[in-house]
Each structure stands twice: as C-alpha cells, then as structure tokens.
C-alpha cells in the first residue's frame, strides 16, 4: 500500500512538519505540548487493533490484547491529562482579560 520511496517521502515530510510545529513555542507550553504529542502517538491504538485483528494463535491474541490495552491507555490518558492542563490556561486567559479591562 505505502511502499519504498513513497514511504520515505512521508517520513521526511512528517519529520519536517513536526520540527516546524515546535520551533516557535513559548516555554510555558512545553509541558502541555509534550503531553499533547504524547496523546497523538496514541494513534498506535489503530495499529494495535489491527495486530489483534490479524492474530491467529492464542499467544498472538494475548500479545495483541496487551497492545490494544496499552495503546488505549496511551490515547485516553494522554487526552485526559492534556485537556485538564489546557483547561487551566483558559481560566487564566479570562482573568487576564478582566484585568486588562479595569
């Protein structure tokens, strides 16, 4: 499906994209952003589902099950934690605005 040179192109372009996203980020957002990118690689869940889907023997099923279990933890945990962190920034923004209007 995605083979050889095409994959190299995808790897390269995605690599540059990641670099570009981070290059201008204030220090205060480093932790939320690390948490956010931690959530994004939770996409491994899709692969884990396929790995369990193609499992034939019991041992493959067990490992596939572990894969989905861990991947779901990564995706859900990453989302909840990032969302909670960024929620606070929203409150701060509000206080900030009020202060500016005084």
């Amino acid at each position: 499906m995605i083979e050889g040179l095409a994959a190299v192109y995808i790897f390269l372009l995605a690599g540059f994209t990641g670099f570009e996203i981070i290059s201008r980020v204030p220090v205060i957002l480093h932790t939320p952003l690390m948490s956010g990118s931690n959530f994004v690689h939770g996409i491994v869940l899709v692969g884990a589902m396929i790995a369990l889907g193609i499992a034939e023997t019991t041992s493959q099923q067990v490992i596939g099950f572990i894969a989905v279990l861990l991947a779901a933890g990564n995706a859900v945990g990453g989302y909840v934690v990032t969302e909670r962190m960024l929620e606070m920034f929203k409150t701060t923004g509000k206080t900030d605005n009020k202060g500016a209007h005084k």
């Binding site: 995605i2 995808i10 995605a14 690599g15 994209t17 990641g18 996203i21 690689h41 996409i43």
Partner: peptide, 14 residues
C-alpha cells in the same frame, strides 16, 4: 506513519 513521525521529530526538538 505521519502521526508517529511528527511526534518523533517534534519530540526530538523539544
């Protein structure tokens, strides 16, 4: 591939 590589490079820079 895309999401993983983006995080890989963004994370390296971070």
């Amino acid at each position: 591939i895309i999401a993983g590589t983006v995080v890989g490079s963004a994370g390296t820079l971070l």
